[in-house]
Design a protein around this nucleic acid. Sequence first.
DNA 1: GCAGGTCTTACGGAACGCGAACGATTCACC
DNA 2: GGTGAATCGTTCGCGTTCCGTAAGACCTGC
Lengths: 229, 229
Amino acid sequence: MLLVDDDPTVAEVASSYLRATGFVVEEASDGFAALEAAERVAPDLIVLDRMLPGIDGLEVFRRLRERSSTPVILLTALGSEDDRIAGLEAGADDYLSKPFSTRELVLRVQSVLRRSIGEFTPESVLEYGEFRLDPSAHVATRAGVELALTAREFDLFEFLLKHPNQVFSREELLRTVWGWTYGDLSTVTVHVRRLREKIERDPRSPVLLTTVWGVGYRFTMGGASDAVV
Amino acid sequence: MLLVDDDPTVAEVASSYLRATGFVVEEASDGFAALEAAERVAPDLIVLDRMLPGIDGLEVFRRLRERSSTPVILLTALGSEDDRIAGLEAGADDYLSKPFSTRELVLRVQSVLRRSIGEFTPESVLEYGEFRLDPSAHVATRAGVELALTAREFDLFEFLLKHPNQVFSREELLRTVWGWTYGDLSTVTVHVRRLREKIERDPRSPVLLTTVWGVGYRFTMGGASDAVV
DNA sequence: GCAGGTCTTACGGAACGCGAACGATTCACC
DNA sequence: GGTGAATCGTTCGCGTTCCGTAAGACCTGC
C-alpha cells in the first residue's frame, strides 16, 4: 500500500497504525514521489492526500489512473460535501476527510480492498488469552462471552490489543483512536475507565489496562503473545 | 464492450480505467452512434448513460433490447427524476448512479459479465440453517416455506447471506445493494426493519440481523458457515 | 502535607435507531 | 384502459444510547 501525505505527523501515525494492522506501507510526501513510488512498487491500494506541494492531489490521481486501475482513497482537509463529490466524480474509490481516526482509515482501506480483491482482507482477528476481537464483525468476546462494547470502547480496545506492552499518553490516544488533534484529555480517562469496567476482573485494581503514572496507559500482555492471525 | 456517454470527461476516465483493467472498449457519445456501434461490434456488454443528446438513453435501451439481449448497465444522474424511471431501471441488468467511482463501475461490469456467462451453470444456492436462497429463481424459503420477499428485500438478504458475520454501515449497504453513491440512509434502516419482519422469529428482538450501534448492521451466522459457492 | 495527576460519578446534549405512516409510482388484474 | 394492491423511498416523532465534559474525591510522588 502506498501512503501519500506531506504532513509528517499524519503520515507517521497513519502508517504505523496500518502497519500494525498488517499492511506493508510505502510512503511518499509529494506528487512526484508518489507517481514514482506507484510505478516502482505497484501497490494494491493508494491513500492519497488531496492537498500536496507541487502537483495537486487530484492531478496525481488522474495520472495514476491513466496507467493503472489501483484503487485510491482520497484524503482531504475539512470535509465539505463539494470536495466529496469532486473526489468521487473524479473516480476515487473512497474518500475521507481530515481529521480522521486511524480506525476510520483502516475501515475504509479494508472496505475498498474487500470490494476490489474480493473477500481477501487479512481477516485479522486479534486474540489474547481469553480475549478475542474481530474487527470486521465488530465482536469482542471474553472466554466466548460477548462483551457489550460501544463503538468507542471497541476502537480503544482494538488499538491497545494491537499495541500491547506499550505506553500511550492521553494525547496520543486522542490522536490515534479519536483522530483529534486537540480536545479534552479527560475524555480518554473516562473511556479507559469504562473499558476497564468491562474487561477487567476487578476494575478497581486493573491488571490488563494499567496506569503508568505521569505518562499514560499500557495494555499489558503476558508472555505468550500471539496477536496476529 | 460499448460505453455510451456524452460527457467527454466521464467517457475518458471510465474508458481508460476499463481498458487498464483489460477490456476492449468502444465508445459512443449519442444514441444513434450507440445503436450503430452495437450493431457493428456486437459487444458483450453495454454501459449506457441515461441522459443523452438526441435520443434519450432509455429509448436507446428499449431499442437495444428489441434486437438483442446484450446485458446493459445504466448510468443515471442524480436528481428527483430518478424515481420515475425506477421501473425501467429494473429492466436493466444493473444500474449505477452518478457520480460513481470508476472501480465501482468495473466491479459491476465484472459482476454482470460473470452472471451472463455463468447463466448456463446452475446458479449458486445459498443456504443457512433453515434458510435457502436461490438468486436465479429469486426465491427465498425458510424451512421450505417461501418467504414473500420483495425485490429489494431479496437483494439485501442475498448480500447479507453472502457476507455473514460482518458489519456493514448503512452507507456501504446503500452503495453495494442499492448501487447509490449517496442518498437517504434511512432507506436502509427501513428495509432492514422490513426484512427483519420476515426472517426473524421475533422481529422486536432480532437474533440474525442485528444492529451494531453507531456502526451498522450484521447478519450473524452460527458456527457452521458454508456461504460461498 | 502539598501539588499535580488520576479516578469516579453524574449529567445534559447530541446522535442514533426505531416504528408508524404517507405519497408516489408501478404492476397485475380485470 | 382503468382500478386496486403492492412496493419503495421518505418523513416525523419518540425513546434510547452514547459521548464528552465538569466537578469533586482520591491517590501518588516528593
